[in-house]
């Protein structure tokens, strides 16, 4: 992780621009429109993320635990939608979205910051005490992220690959309910990750539907299965806590996620994005 962060903070702008150049190449022309659309989608979400984080941070800083709890999951969802892009800035990803177990001293580690640090205080300690610096930092990080994304040339490989990466992440570290372990708001995150993956798929679908209609149908069916399953847990304000998810629904979701990860991992190859 260290090596990676070093490389990124140093040469981030340049390095990311490089593969972006490939987009200018003739054979990538078909991707120009979907990537431009995707950029819009990401911009909408980062703007919303900044606005929502402002409200969340304000609630934390005024000690309004109840309000902060209510805003936690809806604020995160915009981040979860654009994770493939947000994670390119891994220094920010660590400070915004790392989990306690990414740190040697877990919850007690002073470097543990961001959403999950505040989540821990809100649900575990039922308090916002001592959270002001983390709240300020979170807002600053989110604004920084917004700025950096604005100036980013979107690499086709990251965008197209992002559809599978989002599913990979749910499969590897989220389906078990480890992500929002204090608030149990994981189903919101799932929703965000699925939205983000589906967006990418929808944008390029016209480019693959002719050559492989069976593939498109299978992927669409699995997204629909996910929707139907998550919809069962919808409430007036959002989603039920993760522990309400039944074993059989978790199995259905896991199978859909794994199948989507497997299928979407061929998207780059199908679109000739190396």
């Amino acid at each position: 992780m260290k090596l990676r962060r070093l490389l990124i903070s140093g040469a981030a702008a340049l390095a990311i621009a490089l593969p972006g150049l490939a987009a200018a190449k003739e054979e990538m022309l078909h991707l120009v429109a979907p990537i431009a659309d995707y950029k819009l989608y990401v911009a909408e979400n980062t703007e919303k993320l900044v606005a929502d984080t402002e409200a969340f941070v304000a609630a934390v800083k005024t000690g309004n635990v109840e309000k902060a709890r209510a805003l936690f999951a809806p604020t995160r969802i915009s981040y979860e939608r654009i994770e493939p892009i947000a994670e390119l800035f891994s220094d920010l990803d660590v400070s915004i979205d790392a989990r306690a177990d990414d740190f040697e001293k877990a919850e007690k580690d002073p470097a543990f910051s961001g959403f999950h640090r505040i989540e821990h205080a809100l649900w575990d300690a039922n308090s916002t005490k001592g959270m002001e610096p983390y709240a300020d930092k979170l807002l600053a990080d989110v604004k920084d992220l917004h700025k950096r994304i604005d100036g980013l040339v979107f690499p086709p490989k990251v965008v197209i690959g992002g559809a599978a990466v989002l599913m990979e992440e749910v499969a590897a570290t989220k389906i078990s309910g480890e992500e929002d372990r204090y608030s149990h708001t994981d189903l919101w995150d799932f929703r965000g990750n699925f939205d983000g993956s589906k967006k990418i798929f929808d944008l390029v679908e016209p480019l693959v539907s002719k050559q492989d209609p069976a593939f498109v149908k299978k992927v669409a069916d699995n997204f629909a299965r996910v929707d139907a399953t998550l919809d069962k847990y919808k409430t007036a304000k959002g989603y039920e806590p993760y522990d309400k998810l039944t074993d059989s629904d978790r199995t259905v979701l896991a199978a859909a996620v794994n199948t989507l990860a497997e299928d979407l991992s061929t998207l780059r190859g199908k679109l000739g994005v190396d």
Binding site: M1, R4, L7, I8, A12, L14, A15, I16, L18, P19, E83, E87, L88, S90, D93, V94, I96, D97, A98, R99, D102, P155, K157, V158, G161, V165, E168, E169, A172, T173, K174
Partner: peptide, 17 residues
């Protein structure tokens, strides 16, 4: 955030390699 962030794919993108 995931534990899989350092997948080779993304690292190569970042490095432009």
């Amino acid at each position: 955030m995931s534990d899989g962030r350092n997948g080779p794919g993304r690292r190569q993108v970042l490095l432009g390699l």
